[in-house]
Amino acid sequence: MSVATETTARTPAARVIEMAGRGHRSIPVLVTLAIIWAVFYSQSSAYLSFRNITNLTLQIATTAILALGVVFVLLVGEIDLSSAVLSGVCAAVAAGLAVNSGLPLPLAIAVAIAAGMAITLIEALVITFGVPSLIVTLGGMVILQGLILVVLPPEFTVSVAGTSFAKIASTAIPAGTSYLLAAVGTLAFAAYGTFQYRERLSTGTRTSPVSVVVPAVLVAAVLFGGVFILTRQRGLPMPVLIVAVMLLIAWYFTTQTRYGIHLYAVGGDREAAQRAGIPVRRMVLYSFLILGACAAVAGMIDASRQLGVSVTSGGGPLMLNAIAAAVVGGTSLFGGRGSIWSAILGALVIGSISNGVQLLGLTTEVQYFATGAVLIIAVAVDVVLTRGSLLPTRGRRS
């Protein structure tokens, strides 16, 4: 078949797939989330109540932060299976230092984050020498399962109830302060948008003030709407603020800096990035270091919510949920495509299913079936968008 024939033979479906691959991949995620909410709300009006939405945001905080770290690793074309257990190890380190050793909480948190980054640095160094990340992190997961037994005291548990450690998750920011933070965030975003708008004008690029006003209005609606909903109980939960700050920092570095350009270049085509002078090995190391920090923060928030650390910390479906959140949210398993917003969107999808199942008193099997189905569909969509066709790739005939 000639090139001309191939071009003319492109179906409307192929053109739609191509546009979706280049466009906003978060739209299908938002549609899926709306469907999930509608289904559960039809079964129980309490599902979208202020109280339950607040509970949902608290439940997904750990998954969202861990998924944020996973996104950075996926963007460079790697994968990590050990970060969930690592979060438990870091939580055990922080709780042991703050509760058992009497170390000031900020210092204990810093040590735990440093420990998480050190462990992922070791894994990344092995990976950069050519060992597949799947094998390295699978082995790392097993090692960390033994390490948490070493870090924990002989009774294999550390209780943080009644300590300053427990306040990480239980602290609520008053409504007035929360609205002030929303206003500051909106103004900062609008100011940065205005700065970019003036830079485009100075370079002769044709642009419209609408490109500044519309995003600022949307950000204001999200921030003030979120604060309104989440402060209806005691106030804005501290874990929600931590997630928001981490997402904003990650958004800035992945979209507004040279680091972000290099990150996507390495994931898109590692050999081409190497030829262009991009430090590929260093970018892989950076991604795993970020994952280590995110795992430590996620583990400490989870330990604060659970009021303790044990041998089961970081276990269960946490690793699966974090990877699923990143992929369901729109980050490609093949590297180079996705955004940090995938973490929160995917965590909302996974968490909404779990929350709805628990609220309706359904069996755990339903949650696993639904989560697994959503993950498979998300990966299938990613494969279709990657190859640009609904049909499997076949050898072309001349």
Rank of each mutant, 00 (worst) to 15 (best):
V3N: 14
V3T: 12
A4T: 13
A4I: 10
T5L: 09
E6V: 11
I17A: 06
E18W: 13
E18Q: 15
M19Q: 14
H24L: 13
S26I: 04
P28L: 10
L30D: 01
A38W: 07
S45L: 11
A46V: 10
Y47V: 11
I53F: 06
N55R: 03
N55A: 04
I60F: 04
T63Q: 04
A64V: 11
V70C: 06
V70Y: 01
L75N: 05
G77S: 01
L81P: 02
S82P: 05
A84S: 14
V85I: 12
G88I: 02
A91D: 06
A95P: 02
G96E: 10
N100M: 13
P106I: 07
V111H: 13
A115D: 11
A115E: 11
G116Q: 01
M117F: 06
I119D: 04
L125D: 03
F129V: 07
S133R: 00
L134S: 08
L134T: 00
V136M: 10
V136H: 12
G139Y: 15
I143Q: 05
G146N: 09
L147N: 10
L147T: 15
L152F: 05
P153F: 15
E155S: 01
E155R: 12
S159D: 14
A161T: 15
T163I: 06
I168S: 09
I168P: 07
S170R: 12
T171F: 15
A172D: 00
P174V: 10
S178D: 00
F189E: 00
F189H: 08
Y192R: 09
T194W: 11
Q196V: 14
R200F: 07
L201W: 05
T203C: 06
T205S: 02
V210L: 14
P215L: 08
L218S: 03
A220L: 02
G226C: 03
G226Q: 06
V227T: 05
R232P: 09
Q233G: 07
V240E: 07
T254C: 09
T255Q: 15
Q256M: 02
Y259L: 13
I261Y: 07
H262M: 09
L263F: 04
A272E: 01
R275N: 10
R281Y: 05
M283V: 13
L291S: 02
C294K: 01
V297P: 01
V297T: 12
G299Q: 01
G299C: 04
I301P: 07
A303S: 14
S304M: 09
S304V: 08
S304Y: 08
R305N: 13
R305Y: 10
L307F: 13
L307C: 03
G308D: 10
G308P: 02
S313M: 03
L318P: 03
I323M: 14
A324G: 10
G330F: 07
T331I: 03
F334R: 04
F334P: 04
F334A: 14
G335I: 04
S339Q: 11
I340Q: 00
I340P: 09
G346V: 03
G346I: 03
G346M: 06
A347K: 00
T363Q: 12
E365V: 09
T371M: 12
L385Q: 14
L390Y: 06
P392V: 12
R394H: 12
R397G: 15
S398K: 12
